[in-house]
């Protein structure tokens, strides 16, 4: 008798989420563990969004900042560059300049940036606040309105501000990122609270909080993996939204993406090392269950796309 590989099938399924309008894109929808297409259906490949921000990336390390030299002083030209030159499938605009400790830009300014970027691009837009609980609830409410009818993702809604942000996403028909801090039970709780407000769980994206390779990635990995297992094996509907890996912002802060070759010769080429760091972190998130990634360096994105190609075969 011929050998038949055992297959694991599940009762649950990840929600399929479509974002954008002109060049809409979908992710999620699988009823198997990441890339286990031999056991079920994997209708979409994971999506990688290029990260841009509303202010010049002066805090980004040279390796990744230099890629966007000449375009990054203006979010519109930066977004166009990503869409036209890098063939970005989606763009994530981080409104970091609204943070009170940064440029402290107001909701009106944020609104203008969002409108300008949206009129310049066709690919879907992910609009992120500055991760300041109070300020985000003002800013994201304003930009949700500015982005209406464009089917964006807005975020991140957290325990301290989910009510206003959820209401804004609901009113203007956006998808919503729900972020909790590396705790599977709190992640579930936040998704419950958001859906109890009447927000459809099918429009949620769960962010269990990312971390970079070497800096607690195993915690993110484990939480993602357990969320995915709850979605599939327990058919837990509030755990079935796709998962986000907000990779770039964590990776490009760690020493391995900053320390020069003269400082640490044994670590080898800074460029190669830092791009690899982002790619490897992203790959780990995908294998753990992420369907949506936000990344910065084009070479790291290309490497991860190739990794996805191979796993999707």
């Amino acid at each position: 008798m011929a050998f038949v590989a055992p297959k694991e099938t599940f009762s649950g399924k990840v929600f399929e989420v479509t974002i954008g309008t002109d060049k809409a894109i979908s992710f999620g929808g699988e009823n198997v563990l990441p890339f286990h297409s031999f056991e079920g259906t994997v209708p979409h490949r994971p999506v990688i969004a290029y990260e841009i921000q509303d202010v010049p990336p002066e805090d980004w390390p040279e390796t990744v900042r230099s890629v966007y030299e000449g375009v990054s002083s203006d979010p519109v030209s930066w977004a166009r560059f990503c869409e036209d030159k890098l063939n970005a499938k989606a763009i994530a605009l981080r409104l970091i300049g609204t943070h009170p400790d940064r440029e402290n830009k107001g909701p009106e300014e944020a609104k203008k940036v969002v409108s300008d970027v949206l009129s310049a691009i066709k690919v879907p837009l992910i609009i992120l606040g500055s991760n300041h609980v109070e300020k985000d609830s003002e800013v994201l409410v304003a930009v949700a309105e500015a982005a209406k009818d464009r089917n964006c993702i807005i975020g991140k809604a957290q325990e301290g501000n989910y009510k206003t942000i959820t209401a804004a996403a609901m009113a203007h028909n956006h998808k919503l990122i729900a972020m909790s801090e590396l705790d599977i039970n709190l992640s579930k709780q936040l998704n419950i609270l958001i859906t109890q407000m009447g927000f459809p769980k099918e429009r949620l994206i769960t962010d269990p909080m990312c971390s970079a390779l070497g800096y607690g990635i195993e915690y993110t990995y484990s939480v993602m993996e357990r969320i995915r297992l709850a979605a599939l094996t327990q058919n837990d509907a509030v755990m079935q939204p796709p998962l986000l890996g907000d990779v770039g912002t964590y990776v490009w802060k760690v020493k391995e993406t900053q320390a020069s070759e003269t400082e640490l010769p044994s670590w080898g080429s800074l460029k190669e090392r830092s791009i690899t760091w982002e790619a490897v972190t992203a790959a780990a998130m995908l294998v753990a269950g992420a369907e949506l990634l936000i990344m910065r360096h084009p070479e790291a994105v290309v490497a991860v796309e190739r990794f996805i190609d191979e796993l999707m075969q």
């Binding site: 039970n185 579930k188 709780q189 609270l193 357990r226 327990q234 837990d236």
Partner: peptide, 12 residues
């Protein structure tokens, strides 16, 4: 352990 715990599990 058949359902993942959340504070609002009774409301689900």
């Amino acid at each position: 352990g058949k359902t993942l715990y959340a504070h609002s599990y009774l409301e689900m």
